[in-house]
Design a protein around this nucleic acid. Sequence first.
RNA 1: GGGUGUGUAGCUCAGCCGGUAGAGCAGCGGCCUUUUAAGCCGUUGGUCGAAGGUUCGAUUCCUUCCACACUCACCA
Length: 546
Amino acid sequence: MSFEAPTYRSEEGSPNRSPIFLRSVISFRPKNPYIIPIMKGIPMDEHAQQEKHSTLEQILEQRKEKIARIREMGIDPFPYAYEVTHRSAEVADGFESLENTQVSVAGRLMTIRKMGKASFAHLQDGAGRIQLYLSRDDIGETAYDMFKLLDIGDIAGVRGLVMKTRTGEVTVKAQELTLLAKNIRPLPIVKEKDGVVYDAFADKELRYRKRYLDLIVNPEVKDVFVKRAKIIRATRDFFDSRGYLEVETPVLQPLYGGANARPFITHHNSLDMDLYLRIADELYLKRLIVGGFDKVYEFSRNFRNEGMDRNHNPEFTAIEFYEAYVDYYYMMDLIETYFHTIADAMGTPVLNYKDASIDLTLPFDRKPMADLFTEHLGLDIAACSEGDFAAWCREHQVEFDPKWNYGQFLDKLFDEFIEPKLIRPTFVIDYPKAISPLAKVKRNGDARFVERFELFICGAEYVNAFSELNDPLDQRERLEGQDRLRVQGDDEAQAFDEDFIQAIETGMPPTGGVGIGLDRVIMLFTGQTSIKDVLLFPAMRTEKSS
RNA sequence: GGGUGUGUAGCUCAGCCGGUAGAGCAGCGGCCUUUUAAGCCGUUGGUCGAAGGUUCGAUUCCUUCCACACUCACCA
């Protein structure tokens, strides 16, 4: 079953607690330093002259000038490699054993404090920051003269002795300074004292558009993506260790299916045919189950041409996995284990998310959808008709569309009144058949329901799973039904995929299938409330060149 | 799509009831060999998001547009 992006219902508009989000918004567009102005029809020299008036252009010119001056000193401002022996954190953490020994570190200059013939600076590398002490007497006059030309943002390497300053900060006392790459475009200058951040680079638009600056200047951003990588690694280990085969199926599909969503459409020139970017990989993974791979999974980048908000990005990552000979009960156990495993890998058995405390070590609740309706709305859905739902809506002054069928009523009411209340991890089981065209009918029960579960945490959906439908006659009928809806104008109904039906007709074993919204899981484990903050390059409108 | 808000120097922000703009940081020029939001002296830099309108005069008021954020809806 493919994952369908959920909707958060919880409170709060305040995005993040981190200090970098404190300041308000500023504009940058007309003079954005990271966009090279395009001035058609103006010769370069004239162009440069024109732009001399802007500070930014001045800075760019000054720094280009510095590059020239450094070259005149016989120094290559862009050398090819540098031998690094230690990362910043290793020097700081290993001071006891490293004191007075020689190390070489490399990174970006983030602070510079010049005091005449000696200076301090901070170098930032992938592991953190380390202070440098550079004196003319230690590194020589030429190197020191070059140092005076360096700017915040330059990449440099330093070889020197580990020491502590009199304020106790571990510092590399430079014996040798090597410029590794000259910066010409100024960085946002962020300062910090006693944990208070000054002049934070907090404009969300700029941060998303210029993620490289965000990463340089706001180190906590990096942590989120390190955690993201960890979760992906742990997920892959989880499936690999259980004998699942990682597969890759088409992103460009002649028909889109496996979920209800509008697709992106593209065109293949030599085939002269339209193709769709996948909205799910479900139908292909099932073909592989038919083909005899008993356990498969895929990290599937899906594309849905729909609204964007802090829970939806047009492209997002789902993990789908399918296992032959198991049902949705088995998959519920597996999902519970999955969350325990990730929590374990992240060292966070208890999560604090959106003002809720989520203990992932406890068993997850399992509640039939029907029970939740009884509990929250006092509705006995087994006995309800469309008319009964309509009456209930009228009575409770809830807007509804009289054309809704049984399943749609259940879906909408669930969404509105029940989902937001599912804070503790809860498997909601047994969904209406009408909204689950790929799931098997509930065994020994009401034929209007299917064996499907979704996992909710903090009022949001994380997982969607079925006992997969493998009766080809039933499957054909249901997809035909979807296709009729589509033809009638429901542009999110699933298209009819004859080859998929033929695959099912070939014989698919009983199969359990699951889709997990990976971005959601990452949000949960990193405490982020916007999907943009777990995507390195979230979708943004392109900037109009003025 | 609706609502609210924001957009002023490279960055972070002031700018009252209309009189064409300021600060800190960064930059530039000096001084300074254990500083750390280094400090001190001097200094460059702005089509006030865009276009219209009102006005003698608009960063300021009005309209439209653009971008973003938040939010509601739709969509899952």
